[in-house]
Design a binder for these strands. Structure first.
Length: 321
DNA sequence: TGCTGCGCTTT
DNA sequence: AAAGCGCAGCA
């Protein structure tokens, strides 16, 4: 289990009631933001300290991994400068009776604050620049001690969390699909091709097959068992990119799932990347060698640019700068 | 609501 | 070095 700290002054009510965390992917100026990147490394069962009005007002238990999701409409004017597509994690929050004020205990906490990306200033005040900060286990123990007995049942609950799937991904894709159907500017044949491309079939798959011959991970080469998986996801791509053969890999269904949801990825040199949040035993049962490094071979120039997007925007891993 | 602040990234 | 940015804190 890992521990996190979330600043929720502006969105506390929405996120607590809605049972989620949401962040943009990038700053307004497209700069990288470590506190948004951290969303990608949350796992079901992680414990989240919710900070609001100078206090830790609630504790959350993550119930899903991170996934791409549109900005919640209920935010209204809060964070109006945030881009429309961001990261979401499902969380069950429990408000605290003893909502401690970290500043009152800063002498105790100070030794455990990290040098970088700390959620607190040395004087105990919060920081506007923080959204989701990592909390090391020493700091977490101190906070849990200060809050007291009401944390125990939450810690127990965290041990037995049943991970929830990212159900609103389907919803937003179906929304895009109906927009395609209604668009008079798209020919009927292309509409069909675009819809089939979402499922990794049709013209898109035929185009991918001109570049790829087998599942890079399992080696399966019978097209019956292969799905054309998008490197730049269908929901993020332009219509042209949705049908671009360079934007696809032929994968068996379980590998397609792992790649689509960011549990695995590929370096441009062909090296398989395994996300730190992935459940290793499951990956092994899906036929991935988790004990040694795997190289799946070279990619074309076009594939590399789509794989850049996948690592940057889908893979559940905080990348080095 | 607006003013000040700090830690971080980018130029 | 300097500017830009952000789920803070305070009046």
């Amino acid at each position: 289990m890992r521990y996190w700290w979330v600043n929720q002054n502006q969105t506390y009510r929405h996120e607590i009631d809605g049972g989620y965390l949401w962040s943009p992917k990038k700053n307004k100026n497209q700069a990288r933001n470590q506190f948004y990147e951290n969303m990608r490394e949350v796992s079901p069962g992680d414990l989240i300290f919710s900070f609001k009005d100078t206090r830790i007002a609630a504790i959350g238990i993550a119930e899903s991994y991170c996934y791409e999701s549109p900005k919640p409409v209920e935010f209204g004017t809060a964070g109006s400068y945030w881009e429309n597509i961001g990261w979401k994690v499902k969380v069950r929050f429990t408000p605290l009776a003893n909502s401690i004020r970290p500043k009152d205990h800063i002498a105790l906490l100070l030794p455990f604050l990290p040098k970088k990306y700390s959620p607190l200033q040395p004087n105990g005040n919060g920081l506007q620049s923080v959204y989701l900060a990592h909390v090391n286990s020493d700091l977490a123990s101190e906070l849990i001690n200060l809050i007291g007995a009401e944390v125990s049942p939450l810690l127990d609950a965290a041990q037995t969390v049943q991970p929830i799937a990212a159900d609103d991904l389907d919803f937003s894709e179906l929304q895009i699909e109906s927009e395609i159907y209604l668009d008079p500017a798209i020919r009927e044949t292309e509409k069909l091709a675009l819809v089939r491309a979402r499922l990794g079939q049709g013209i898109f798959k035929e185009r991918v097959r001109k570049i790829e011959t087998r599942c890079r991970v399992t080696g399966v080469d019978n097209p019956v068992h292969l799905i054309a998986s998008h490197c730049k996801p269908w929901r993020d791509a332009s219509n042209e990119e949705r049908l671009d053969g360079e934007n696809g890999l032929l994968l068996t269904p379980s590998i397609d799932h792992l790649f689509d949801r960011g549990f695995i990825g590929f370096e441009n040199n062909g090296q398989l990347i395994i996300s730190p949040v992935a459940h290793r035993p499951s990956l092994q049962r899906m036929g991935i060698d988790i004990n040694s490094t795997t190289n799946v071979g070279a990619f074309t120039q076009g594939q590399k640019s789509f794989l850049d997007f996948h690592r940057e925007s889908v893979l559940l891993q905080v990348r080095a700068i």
